[in-house]
């Protein structure tokens, strides 16, 4: 791996058992991502983009080939080491926000820092900073049910960014948002990418997201069909 290469995927194959046989979701993927990229896996439903994102996020493992994330082979990671990798270096943004419903905005954003066992003072400052990045400083006591979809996704971004991860994986982050909120979210993420040099990898088929991407990797039937820098 080169110095600034944070993800290196070689000959990656992922098959899922289905009925009596197998469904091949990813078929011979070769890719790499460098620090600070704002890249997207683009393709129709079933093209394998979420599966690839899950493997990069060490939530799933490859059937064949290798995926090396921050110098660690996902295939060889134990459950504990994979959890540590996610805890310390990765941030996740989901289509349905996945906020913890009984927590306030502050507590949701604070959650990853609790897992890192940061002191209360450090946690508070980091959460306030993260909420300021996404423009939600006035909502710290609100619960997810009291927020709009756009606000929920901004909380999710703050939660992903609060520990300043090396890599953020965003799976269809704008799928549940209207155009205005989608642009707002994407501008926020682009700003964070620019200012904090955090690498963003999206899985999307939304044109609004695609127009913000600096690199677009098109997938079809589990294969990379195009990889272009903008």
């Amino acid at each position: 791996m080169k110095n600034d290469e944070i993800v290196k995927i070689s000959g990656l194959v992922k098959r899922f058992p289905i009925g009596g046989g197998f469904f091949t979701a990813l078929n011979g993927i070769d890719l790499s991502f460098r620090t600070g990229e704002f890249a997207g896996l683009v393709g129709p439903s079933g093209s394998g983009k979420t599966t690839l994102l899950n493997i990069i996020g060490s939530l799933d493992g490859p059937t064949e080939g290798s995926a090396v994330v921050l110098g660690q082979s996902v295939r060889e990671l134990s459950q504990k080491k994979a959890a540590r990798l996610r805890k310390e270096s990765l941030g996740f943004i989901f289509q349905t926000y996945n906020l913890l419903p009984v927590y306030t905005v502050f507590e949701n954003v604070e959650f990853p820092l609790l897992l890192l066992e940061m002191s209360a003072g450090e946690r508070k400052q980091a959460v306030l900073d993260a909420l300021e990045w996404v423009g939600l400083s006035d909502k710290i006591k609100s619960r997810p049910a009291q927020l709009s979809g756009g606000e929920c996704q901004r909380v999710a971004i703050a939660r992903a960014m609060v520990k300043k991860p090396v890599l953020v994986l965003a799976d269809e982050p704008t799928a549940n948002l209207d155009a205005a909120n989608s642009h707002n979210i994407l501008q926020t993420m682009e700003k964070l990418n620019r200012e904090l040099k955090t690498t963003f990898i999206f899985a999307t088929h939304d044109d609004k997201v695609i127009q913000y991407l600096h690199r677009q990797i098109s997938l079809e039937d589990g294969r990379v069909v195009r990889d272009e820098q903008k």
Binding site: K87, F92, P101
Partner: peptide
Amino acid sequence: QKEIGTYMAMGMTR
């Protein structure tokens, strides 16, 4: 379940 998945994504072991 979604919450459990989120816990794991954020770095908690099973």
